[in-house]
Amino acid sequence: MSHNTRSYHHVRPEVIPLLADGKLFSEGAKAPTRAAFAQTVIELGHANPDIVVLDADVSKSIGTNKFAAAFPDRAFNFGIAEQNMFAAAAGMATAGLVPFACTYAVFASLRALDMVRNSIHYPNLNVKIAASHSGITPGPDGVTHQGQEDLSIMRAIANSTVIAPADPDTTVLAVRAAAAYEGPVYLSFTRDPVPQVFRPDYPFAIGRAVTVRDGADVTIIAMRDLTAHALAAAANLAREGIDARVIDCPTLKPLDEATVLLAAEQTGAIVTAENNVYFGGLGSAVAELLVENDPIPMKRIGVRDTFAESGPYLDLLDKYGLSYGHIEAAVKSVIARK
């Protein structure tokens, strides 16, 4: 075996042998990150009586109906009225509550965006926006339910903090951190099951990107469900003699500029990978930083300028250019430009 476990950080040891050939996706333990969120918000609810959960008729899907069962007085289902829900969350925050307002990413970032911008971010209120079905992970649901622009949209709003954890265990850490943070936080979760990648010692902190695989030839910076693909790509590339660093970037905003710039300096080429449109999100944030500081060969993996379609989640990642094979090709192309 060519795997060197010392070159991985915080990755579950049982996952490392599964990285090559993408066996992680067929054989590894998986769960949707929305479920980890729903569990964690109950834990937080026990610790803090000011935490309330707001839903818009998808509490069964997100799993927040369990919070409603545990804390019936602190759960508010607004029905199919996302605009009212987000502005009401703002009102609750002015009175000292810590609302987690939950819906799908498309509705949080698009349908209710005016309320999210003007009633939450402009007054900088302590509302947590919990968005499931982010990216094209609601594979079978199709385009109307695929939140493929939410990260880009939320990043553009002043006072925003945008978090998209890679797997269920880091989701727990991210939700706890969001609750402890004073101010608006956008949390992005997957509908579909994603591999359990990281150990509980993952050093989650808002604004921190974590190097999860050492490497000297190139850096892959990935977020949410594409971090597992980045690790799988790195394992395959290792067999071809390419030593790829992998950085998991769960906080899109604020971007961990120091970690990105260090990787640029030390590896000389960067590929970003996000299950999100390829403009305005992670690829754009990294490109903006590099072009003003250290312009090096770079390529962005993301949904190109298109809508996706209904289909199995992993097949969609393949078709729309997001899965580990596409990341490997992008790595080779940037290395060729070094």
Partner: peptide, 12 residues
């Protein structure tokens, strides 16, 4: 938006 905000304040 203000009436929704008011509903949130009233619920709180």
């Amino acid at each position: 938006q203000g009436l929704s905000v008011g509903v949130g304040m009233a619920l709180a």
